[in-house]
Every structure is written in structure tokens, then in C-alpha cells.
Amino acid sequence: MRFGGIQKTSTIDFPKKLSCVVFTLGCDLDCFYCHNRQLIETGDQVPEKEIKAFLEKRKGLLDGVVVSGGEATLQKDLLNFFKYLKKLGYATKLDSNGQNLEIIKKLNEAKLVDYFAIDLKATREKYTRICGEKADYKKTAETIRYLFENKADFEVRTTLYPGITKEDLIFIAKDFEDFPLWRFNYFHMPEKFKKCDLKRLRGKALTKYDMIKMRKDLNEYQKNLEI
């Protein structure tokens, strides 16, 4: 496992759990608004033994561990790491862009992940424009539908980056049955970004006030919103 950092305590990343968040290095997407770009480019690696020493020390004090990124499903030893977390008695959560369904299937079938958070980033038509040319809306949609069909505990997350519109959110909402939870993350300017993206990053982003105003329209298609 290649780790880029750890958030030692969190009350908001894992529903109803006091958790820590471990961040893996590398990602298969290139979202222009990414707030963890240091993890997908040249981030410093944190030795796995340091991560494990912390997890073993906090056993019984933390409820759960969130494995995030970057994109954790790219890690070759991911299944073994989740087995290790389970042996320590932790509840487990995976944050993912949903592009690697086969890995998510293996984790779910082995009952190694208690809760999934899948990032659904844009409409089908805009996915590559927002997330880079390797991005595939269909893959993420297939992952979400797999989690529905297999009654997994999960949520869907969408970041309200500059340029995403009410119409975009309605297009996304119409494409699926009711998500168990659709969580919106409000945009903050990333510390590190590509110069070519600066103009887009300075654009107008939806605010909480905007989202409250459009809640009724979104509720026609998705009932379980966290705004």
C-alpha cells in the first residue's frame, strides 16, 4: 500500500463513527477541481508501518477507518489492507470514484467494507471535460447500480465545483433510483492546481443558499439529499 497521509480523527467522514482517514497515493482521474492533487502527482509517501502503528495504537479508541485517496482501488494490496483493518476490529469505509467495479465487487463480496462513498462528478456528457479523458461516467454508474442491486450501505457524493449547474444536477438525479444518501460537498479553492484550470476554478460555484432554493426540484427525482 502506498499512503500519502492520515487524518487522525474525524467525526464527519464516516456516518455515526469516530474515525480516522488514511489517504492513498495515485488516481486514474484528473478532476480540475481536485483538492488532493498532491496525492495524484508527486505526494510524499508515508511508510505503511507508520500507518499500521497508529491504527494498532488507536484500536478500541476509534470506531472506524476510512480509506480514501487519490483513488484507493488502484492499490494492489487493498483487499489485504481491509482484511487487516477487520482483524483489528474496525468498521471500514471506502471512498472511491467508482471507476473500478471489479475491485469494489471483491471488497463487497468478501464483506470487507461496511460503507461505500462513491463520487459521481458530472453528467454523462461532461464527465471527461470535468475529470479528464480517462474518466467514464458509465463505469461509475455501473458501480452505483451494483451497490443498489446488492443492498450495500453507501452514499453518493457530488462536489459543487465552479460550472456545475442546477440542470446538471437534475440530469444526474433523473438517471438513478433514489440514492440512500446524496451528499453535496461545497467547493473550496484547492491549494495546488494546474495553471490551465485557473480560469475555471475562479468561476461561480453553487452555494448552500442556491442548493436550498433548488431542493424542491431535486426532490422530484432524489429524496435523500444532504445539503
Rank of each mutant, 00 (worst) to 15 (best):
H188G: 08
E133L: 07
D197E: 09
K49M: 09
L101H: 03
F54A: 01
S19F: 04
N100Y: 05
S96Y: 00
M1F: 12
R2I: 06
K8F: 13
L29E: 06
N185K: 14
D168Q: 08
G5D: 06
I227E: 12
H188W: 03
I212M: 05
F176Y: 11
S19N: 14
I212T: 11
L18Y: 08
K216H: 12
N224C: 06
L74I: 06
I104W: 00
R215G: 00
A110K: 15
D28C: 06
D13I: 09
T9F: 09
G132W: 03
R2D: 12
W182R: 02
T9E: 09
A117D: 09
G60K: 10
V156G: 01
T158L: 04
T9Y: 12
V156Q: 02
D77Y: 01
F116C: 06
G98C: 10
K52R: 11
T158H: 02
G26V: 07
S19G: 01
G5L: 08
R37H: 05
L225I: 01
V156T: 02
T207Q: 09
E191A: 13
G132K: 02
D13F: 11
K194E: 14
F116E: 01
K105N: 01
T140C: 10
I6L: 14
S19D: 11
D153P: 02
Y90K: 04
A141V: 08
H35F: 13
K16S: 08
A91F: 03
L181V: 08
A141L: 05
C196L: 15
F184E: 10
L18C: 03
R37K: 15
E56H: 08
R124S: 04
T123V: 04
A91S: 15
V21S: 03
A173E: 00
I51F: 05
N108R: 11
F82T: 00
S96W: 05
K151N: 15
Q75H: 06
Y127N: 07
A72P: 00
Y33R: 13
I103H: 01
Q45H: 07
L101A: 08
F14N: 00
T140F: 05
K192F: 07
W182Y: 01
G203L: 12
T9W: 06
K151G: 06
A110D: 10
I212D: 09
C131G: 10
I170Y: 12
N108Q: 14
L55Q: 10
L79T: 13
P190Y: 09
L101W: 11
I130V: 15
K76Q: 14
E41C: 12
V66A: 06
L61A: 04
A135E: 12
L169E: 04
C196K: 15
D178G: 11
Y221G: 06
G4M: 09
G60P: 12
E226A: 07
